[in-house]
Design a protein around this nucleic acid. Structure first.
Lengths: 147, 147
DNA sequence: TTGAAGAGCATGAGATTAGTGCTAAATTAG
DNA sequence: CTAATTTAGCACTAATCTCATGCTCTTCAA
């Protein structure tokens, strides 16, 4: 499917929302209202992000979440991995060794492709995601298929 | 999850297998034996590839499948789309307009990221996948986040 | 005519995700 | 101290999707 889960999507939206606000703590209720995300689910997502160390939760009135990471230094891949676990594009690419072995000639190529996909997420940061304006979007250096 | 289905993985393996053989038609049985893929499922995958015009099936004894596309000109993304349908990285990126609207500032950024991921698949060809050797693996030109 | 092989259709089992409910713990305000 | 607010943690249901298989029909070569 090559698709992010909705959890990851919500998580990225929430992180971006937090990055764009200066208040120290923002509640799930407020984030959910602004982003039109089911609050109950958003709460789960933010809890996971807190467990992953990307945000910090504060309880009680005036509580909520705040970013711990700097948006400029936080790769999107990190957010995705916290919410979905390690990125695993294909068994052929990520499994220790290809179980289909002998006849399968694509293992090396698949690893390369999977690596490129991960790179896309690792080389874009949360602040890149926010800039609808120009600039940013780091471009990876040219790369050849390694031997 | 950002993960290819097993169907896509099997499909790529099979396509690569066909590309590496010179015989005109190779049966599901032979492909399945070589790649250690459940034959019944592999048959479904190859049928879909045939419907998608990437391979051609021939019935009867000595029947089987053969590649229709040239490996050097066939992007991996094409194979994936035939087997999984259009690549859809995230609702936020591919949906017409972000349903979470107002507060969601990442739609533009997500589209860019999704586009980069699709590029990875569209810029690698079936022959690239096969070369565990050197060369190939085309490198996309530098790109900036468009306004 | 027979056997090999793909084409088509349907279906069951399993895994994964989306979303919700409920309770406990912390913290602030009065 | 009490009440209200908000996160933390756990469990669970329903829906969706994938994996895999079974069966029948059609085509075709020997």
């Amino acid at each position: 499917m090559l698709r992010l889960t909705r959890r990851a999507e919500y998580g990225l939206m929430a992180m971006a929302f937090l990055a764009g606000r200066s208040e120290s703590h923002i509640s799930v209720r407020e984030i959910g209202n602004n982003l039109a995300i089911p609050k109950r689910l958003l709460a789960e997502v933010l809890k996971d992000l807190a467990r992953g160390g990307l945000v910090e939760g504060a309880r009680g009135p005036n509580g909520g979440y705040r970013l711990l990471a700097e948006p400029e230094l936080l790769p999107l891949g990190r957010v995705v991995e916290v919410l979905e676990g390690p990125i695993h594009v294909a068994d052929c690419a990520d499994g220790g060794s290809c179980e289909h072995e002998s006849g399968c000639a694509i293992q090396h190529g698949m690893r390369f492709v999977a690596g490129r996909i991960k790179q896309v997420l690792d080389q874009s940061t949360l602040s890149d995601l926010l800039e609808s304006a120009p600039a940013a979007a780091p471009t990876p250096p040219p790369q050849r298929m390694p031997v």
